[in-house]
């Protein structure tokens, strides 16, 4: 039985006369403790999708169901981690996490809370930087702090909105491993939005493509039948990975064709004028 479900969800923006349907008839079913990656591209409504899952945006039609109950408002059982970190710049790492903890577990004493926060700081390998403010941290460290804050709320569902796309490749790889490690230690349902096929294949149990908007909807779902733990370097030579990647890329090529196909090639010739030669400055 699916744990997190979207049933016939649609969402549009703008006045009725020129309404742009961003999402149309989105159906999603995620099992408990499953790691699903949604492969989305710019302008395909992926942020809207996360907003709807998190309860921050109300869908025009359809419902969000969590454990067979319809949920409407945002709640601590669904933790969201955003691409832009969304840390409060005037609070330290510890303060940012403590703020969330205070909200979710108001009964904790000061000492208990400090211990609790410390546990999550350690979990994301930020030990030693608890007292730093976000502007003293690198992008990767900020994203770690953001992850710790989200995890500290002990959500049943973790929603990751392109958590790593603002980071450089090296940091990105580190954090990918980190997130998978934490997920394996402490299983929960994860929905991650990404636009990187490799990232999705490395981390997820299942990859679903969000078709480019308008009227974006979820396309076919590709099961990632690769054994865990997955080895980043070895993966590339794995036949199953190669087949999966070909299938996904092949599916994506359909979009590039339909989108780029109408670019009629120019019948013109490039004008035969020669550029002037600049003398060395």
């Amino acid at each position: 039985m699916a744990y997190l479900e979207l049933a016939k969800v649609s969402k549009g923006f703008g006045p009725p006369s020129q309404r742009t349907a961003v999402l149309a008839d989105v159906e999603l079913a995620v099992d408990e403790n499953e790691f699903v990656a949604i492969l989305g591209f710019s302008g395909s409504g992926k942020s809207t999708l996360v907003g709807i899952l998190a309860g921050l945006i109300d869908p025009d039609e359809g419902d969000v169901m969590l454990a067979n109950k319809v949920v409407v408002d945002p709640g601590p059982e669904r933790g969201v981690m955003f691409q832009n970190y969304s840390l409060l710049p005037w609070l330290t790492v510890e303060g940012n996490i403590a703020l969330a903890v205070r909200k979710v577990m108001p009964g904790l004493s000061r000492v208990e809370r400090a211990e609790y926060v410390q546990r999550y700081v350690d979990m994301v390998n930020l030990t030693g930087s608890e007292a730093k403010c976000p502007d003293e941290l690198s992008g990767g460290m900020r994203q770690r702090a953001s992850l710790a804050r989200t995890l500290a709320m002990r959500p049943n569902v973790l929603l990751l909105d392109e958590p790593l796309s603002a980071l450089d490749a090296l940091t990105r790889a580190n954090l990918q491993d980190e997130i998978v490690r934490i997920w394996e230690e402490d299983k929960r349902t994860v929905v991650m939005i990404t636009n990187d096929v490799d990232e999705a294949a490395l981390m997820a149990d299942r990859i679903i493509v969000l078709t480019p908007g308008p009227r974006a909807t979820l396309g076919p779902s590709f099961d990632v039948d690769l054994p865990r733990p997955r080895d980043r370097a070895g993966l590339n030579r794995d036949r199953r990975f190669q087949a999966l990647r070909k299938r996904i890329t092949g599916y994506m090529l359909n979009f590039t064709k339909t989108q780029a196909g109408d670019e009629a090639r120019s019948r013109r010739r490039m004008p035969a004028i020669e550029p002037r030669v600049f003398e060395a400055a």
């Binding site: 780029a260 670019e263 013109r268 010739r269 490039m270 004008p271 004028i273 550029p275 002037r276």
Partner: peptide, 25 residues
């Protein structure tokens, strides 16, 4: 700046050609 000797027509052709070539007609 690069084709000071070309006339306005030729320059416009060049710009239009290049924008069309990248699919921005």
């Amino acid at each position: 700046n690069v084709y000071p000797h070309a006339d306005v027509e030729e320059r416009r052709d060049m710009v239009e050609y290049c924008l069309e070539a990248v699919g921005l007609a």
